[in-house]
Design a binder for these strands. Structure first.
Length: 496
RNA sequence: GCCCCCGUCGUCUAGCGGCCUAGGACGUCGCCCUCUCACGGCGGUAACGCCGGUUCAAAUCCGGUCGGGGGUACCA
């Protein structure tokens, strides 16, 4: 009987959440759910300078939008709380005291400049802390304190080597001599990530740590600390570690917060569906099968194996992300697309909030026309606006030249006498008048009519659109278009 | 400098010794479908960084080399 899997989401609420953060969360999610395990969500807000409530809220928004749920942690509570590290100061102070009692740590009074100066003086090529304060005498301590210096607490790295079997990369070994003693708390007493992250993993009984490759080199330090925590009875066991590959941007650098495509929330705002973003992110380092790349979160959970994760960095490709998103959108029903597009339609003022019953009815008829041709939810308002706008506010976004206006006139004449205002009748009338009568190519014939009726070169299918627009509005717009050039000149001025 | 990670089409990847004259997807190019757009269909393009070894056989295993990335904080 193996111990149940427990993983954690542990973002730092600094700035706008990054897609790499989501990728990491997604893999943790898939791993935990695949094994029927639990997910703990804690906020690592020990950096008081950079942590913000705004960022905290954005992270929660994002997780909820994506549907990455958790079992324990912020917002939902649990037996190992509180789940904001800023509220766990007491716990860290206690652990620090116990580590100190057992001489796992020591006070260090050095400034960074002093360390660098000593390194240079000795001609050492090593960097990082040199262990100067490891064995201070009482007199030395007193001297530093007399200077008014406050010490940081450093962890005493044990001798030997540290090896772990990385879930993604296999055996990795560091020699301790290459891992300098590191600080666990600031001189002002504030705990640092180096302490807080392993301590909480221990206390929250995390069994598997899947995190970004950027943290790989801090793993030997955490493992050494963990060994001490186990000795002290703070930790039950050392979790397994797996380091996920980087998400790269353009060129050969990490996708940074500077890159616009790094901001996860932007995808929601640009009209991606969560299924699309998640599916694309899953592809960054993992594949469900050799010949398939469209799948649901549920399918990912079912098939996910951390051992299958690729160790090499993946470049974020917006084009592919968009393509995957389109594929996911096509899998949604018209009703679902309508539901998802509604906030965008409201925001654009295409429909009111709440939606009137007339608009709701029209929407139900119109959405089938656009659901399968929009690639992002934000395209819905652009495509549907012409149907909902008041006639007084209707405007044409594309121009008509004289030839086009004469086509519109012919179309108007053909439609004005129509007995039945249906898609089929409209199409028949326009084809007879324009294709057969004027002998025009379809695109030359219908383009001007489209612009006249919808205001744009791109719209839902024309005949259906005219039917939905209704006879009166359609004819009025055509009439307006054929007689009202947007320039100063009048249409009949040239016949003088 | 030192330490660690990584190396298959432009990009994401499949491949875990023979099924590979290396498969899929995105991109790109050409064609088809077509009332616009989007979708869709067909076809083309394009990769195992290099050098050694192990083996009857290597993209797959080993060593080296080169290249890329990260770390080397009182950030996370």
């Amino acid at each position: 009987m193996s111990t149940p899997v427990r993983v954690r989401f542990c973002p730092s609420p600094t700035g706008s959440p990054h897609v790499g953060l989501i990728r990491t969360a997604l893999f943790n999610y898939a791993f935990a759910r695949h094994h029927g395990g639990q997910i703990v969500f804690r906020m690592e807000d020990t950096d008081r300078e950079r942590s913000t409530q705004e960022s905290y809220d954005a992270i929660l928004d994002l997780w909820r939008w994506l549907g990455l749920d958790w079992d324990e942690g912020i917002e939902v509570g649990g037996p190992h709380g509180p789940y904001r590290q800023s509220e766990r100061g007491e716990i860290y102070r206690d652990v620090l005291a116990r580590l100190h009692e057992s001489s796992y740590t020591y006070d260090c009074f050095c400034t960074n400049d002093e360390v660098v100066a000593r390194r240079q003086a000795s001609g050492s090529k090593m960097q990082g802390y040199d262990g100067f304060c490891r064995d201070l005498t009482d007199d030395q301590r007193a001297a530093f304190e007399a200077e008014g210096r406050n010490p940081v607490v450093r962890f005493r790295m044990p001798d030997g080597s540290i090896t772990w079997n990385d879930l993604v990369r296999g055996d990795i070994t560091f020699e301790s001599e290459n891992v300098p003693d590191f600080a666990l708390s600031r001189a002002n007493g504030d705990p640092l990530y180096t302490l807080v992250n392993p301590v909480d993993d221990a206390l929250m009984e995390i069994t598997h740590v899947l995190r970004g490759e950027d943290l790989l080199s801090s793993t030997p330090r955490q493992l050494a600390l963990f060994a001490a925590l186990v000795e002290l009875g703070v930790a039950r066991e050392v979790p397994a570690y797996g380091h996920l590959p980087y998400v790269m941007g353009q060129g050969n650098k990490k996708l940074s917060k500077r890159d616009p495509e790094a901001h996860a929330l932007a995808y929601r705002d640009q009209g991606f569906v969560p299924e699309g973003l998640l599916n694309y992110l899953a592809l960054l380092g993992w594949a469900i099968a050799a010949d398939r790349d469209i799948f649901s979160l549920e399918e990912m959970v079912e098939k996910f194996d951390i051992g299958d994760v690729n160790a090499n960095p993946a470049r974020f490709d917006l084009k592919k992300a968009e393509a995957i998103n389109v594929s996911q959108m096509r899998l949604l029903s018209v009703e679902e697309i309508t539901h998802r597009a509604l906030p965008f339609l409201k925001a654009a003022g295409v429909v009111g909030d709440p939606v009137s019953s007339a608009d709701a009815q029209l929407l139900e008829l119109a959405m089938p026309l656009v659901a399968e041709r929009i690639n992002k939810l934000t395209e819905a308002p652009t495509m549907l606006g012409f149907l909902f706008v008041d006639e007084a506010d209707f405007e044409r976004h594309d121009d008509l030249d004289d030839t086009a206006r004469s086509v519109v006139k012919t179309a108007y004449d053909a439609l004005a006498g129509l007995h039945e205002w249906s898609t089929a009748a409209i199409e028949e009338a326009l084809r007879v008048a324009l294709i057969e009568g004027l002998e025009l190519k379809p695109r030359v014939a219908f383009g001007p009519v489209r612009i006249a009726a919808t205001g744009r070169k791109v719209s839902p299918p024309l005949f259906e659109s005219l039917e939905l627009l209704g006879r009166d509005r359609s004819l009025a717009r055509l009439h307006d278009a054929m007689s009202d050039p947007r320039s100063d000149s009048q249409p009949d001025s040239q016949s003088d």
